[in-house]
Computed example of a mutant assay.
Amino acid sequence: MRTYRLEFKQRIPIDLDTAWDFFSSPLNLAEITPKDMAFDVTSPNMANTKMYPGLIITYKVSPLFGIKLSWVTEITHVKDKEYFIDEQRFGPFAFWHHQHHFEEIDGGILMHDTLHYSIGWGPVGSIANAILVNSKIKEIFKFRYQKVEELFGKF
């Protein structure tokens, strides 16, 4: 099973507390996800929930062709105001491990995401990644980058 790695970095002109409060709230993920993905957190009672190890978050999402899928992630690691890691338990990927890191820098914070994922399906998955999945993930992160700039300003 081939595993892919993507990294994304963004400087944001906000303080670490503001960044952590926003990005560690599961409900804010919908705000920085493209609308055509119809992203919906389906876990009950998430309004005031912050990330903690063992947190299970359920979603409905339409990543491709408007097909609605269930996705379940677990927050496996959290170091307050430094990083958290989410891993897919059930969903469209054979493997999904997403690290979210936050670092104070002059004038704001540096947000650094490292994503490891696998589609599975052997050669068919490699082809799907090459022609569709990799570019879709990059498109989602590009949208997020732009939306974060809209919300918090350009660095």
Rank of each mutant, 00 (worst) to 15 (best):
Thr3Tyr: 15
Glu7Lys: 15
Phe8Ile: 05
Phe8Ala: 01
Lys9Leu: 14
Gln10Gly: 08
Ile12Gly: 05
Leu16Arg: 14
Leu16Ala: 09
Leu16Val: 12
Asp17Gln: 12
Thr18Val: 13
Ala19Met: 12
Trp20Asn: 04
Asp21Trp: 08
Ser25Lys: 11
Leu27Gln: 13
Asn28Gln: 02
Asn28Leu: 12
Asn28Glu: 07
Leu29Val: 09
Leu29Thr: 11
Ile32Trp: 05
Ile32Pro: 11
Ile32Thr: 14
Thr33Pro: 04
Pro34Gly: 14
Pro34Val: 12
Pro34Asn: 10
Lys35Asp: 06
Asp36Met: 03
Met37Pro: 02
Phe39His: 09
Phe39Met: 13
Asp40Leu: 12
Asp40Tyr: 08
Asp40Gln: 15
Val41Lys: 03
Val41Asp: 03
Ser43Gln: 06
Asn48Val: 02
Asn48His: 14
Thr49Cys: 04
Thr49Trp: 07
Thr49Arg: 10
Thr49Ser: 06
Met51Phe: 05
Met51Leu: 13
Tyr52Thr: 15
Pro53Thr: 01
Pro53His: 07
Gly54Asn: 07
Gly54Tyr: 06
Ile57Leu: 04
Ile57Pro: 02
Tyr59Pro: 01
Lys60His: 08
Val61Leu: 12
Val61Glu: 01
Leu64Phe: 13
Leu64Pro: 13
Phe65Glu: 04
Gly66Ile: 08
Gly66Cys: 13
Gly66Pro: 00
Gly66Met: 11
Ile67Tyr: 06
Lys68Asp: 01
Ser70Phe: 10
Trp71Arg: 10
Val72Ile: 09
Thr73Val: 13
Thr73Met: 00
Glu74Gly: 13
Glu74Lys: 15
Thr76Pro: 02
Lys79Ala: 08
Asp80His: 14
Lys81Ser: 00
Lys81Leu: 10
Glu82Pro: 03
Glu82Tyr: 02
Tyr83Phe: 11
Ile85Met: 04
Ile85Leu: 14
Glu87Arg: 15
Glu87His: 07
Gln88Tyr: 05
Gln88Lys: 11
Arg89His: 08
Phe90Pro: 07
Pro92Trp: 04
Pro92Asp: 02
Ala94Tyr: 05
Ala94Asp: 00
Ala94Ile: 05
Phe95Gln: 12
His98Asp: 06
Gln99Gly: 04
Gln99Tyr: 13
His101Lys: 05
His101Asp: 10
Glu103Pro: 00
Asp106Asn: 11
Gly107Lys: 15
Gly107Trp: 08
Gly107Phe: 14
Gly108Gln: 06
Gly108Ile: 10
Leu110His: 01
His112Pro: 00
His112Asn: 06
Asp113Thr: 06
Thr114Gly: 07
Leu115Gln: 00
Leu115Asn: 01
Leu115Glu: 09
Leu115Pro: 00
His116Arg: 12
Ser118Tyr: 05
Ile119Arg: 07
Gly120Phe: 04
Trp121Ile: 06
Gly122Pro: 04
Pro123Thr: 11
Ile127Phe: 09
Ile127Cys: 06
Ile127Gly: 02
Ala128Cys: 12
Asn129Thr: 11
Ala130Arg: 09
Ile131Trp: 08
Leu132Trp: 07
Leu132Tyr: 04
Val133Pro: 00
Val133Ile: 15
Val133Tyr: 06
Asn134Leu: 03
Ser135Ile: 07
Ile137Pro: 01
Lys138Pro: 02
Lys138Ala: 10
Glu139Arg: 01
Glu139Asn: 08
Glu139Ile: 02
Ile140Tyr: 03
Lys142Tyr: 11
Arg144Gly: 14
Arg144Asn: 09
Tyr145Val: 01
Tyr145Cys: 11
Gln146Asp: 11
Gln146Thr: 07
Lys147Thr: 08
Glu149Lys: 06
Glu150Cys: 07
Glu150Asn: 11
Leu151Ser: 04
Gly153Pro: 14
Phe155Pro: 15
